[in-house]
């Protein structure tokens, strides 16, 4: 649990965050756990990477934040996808599709 099983590709973290927020608004820990879940435990995002990414994406207008109550009645900061964020997700998804296809080709070639 202390080391990331796989180093995240540049830009992949953004994609994963956007993808996990599709399911609805959630706080930082929620995003982190969601990513862990949807990647089958392959990616564990540490707070040191997660929070800078969340704040950067908020400043880019892809996600917005608000203070809400957590499951255990705790004040927590929630994030939700904006319209720009949804558009960005499409862009990132397409880009990712191209990259994974290209890498797959490259790996098969050898």
């Amino acid at each position: 649990m202390n080391t990331e099983p796989t180093t995240l590709l540049q830009g992949t973290l953004d994609l994963l965050i956007l993808k996990s927020l599709i399911a609805g608004e959630m706080h930082g820990l929620g995003v982190s756990r969601r990513i862990q879940q949807i990647t089958g435990g392959t990616f564990v995002v540490k707070p040191g990477s997660l929070f800078p990414a969340l704040h950067r994406m908020e400043e880019q207008g892809w996600i917005s934040s608000f203070w809400g109550e957590s499951e255990n009645n705790r004040r927590a900061k929630y994030y939700r996808l904006t319209k720009a964020g949804q558009k960005q997700l499409e862009v990132e998804t397409k880009r990712w599709g191209r990259i994974s296809w290209a890498i797959g080709q490259a790996l098969e070639a050898s």
Partner: peptide, 17 residues
């Protein structure tokens, strides 16, 4: 202050978990 609260809340949620 927001950032501070957010990180602290995160820590507490991790602890609870």
């Amino acid at each position: 202050a927001d950032l501070d609260q957010e990180v602290h809340a995160h820590l507490e949620m991790l602890t609870e978990e």
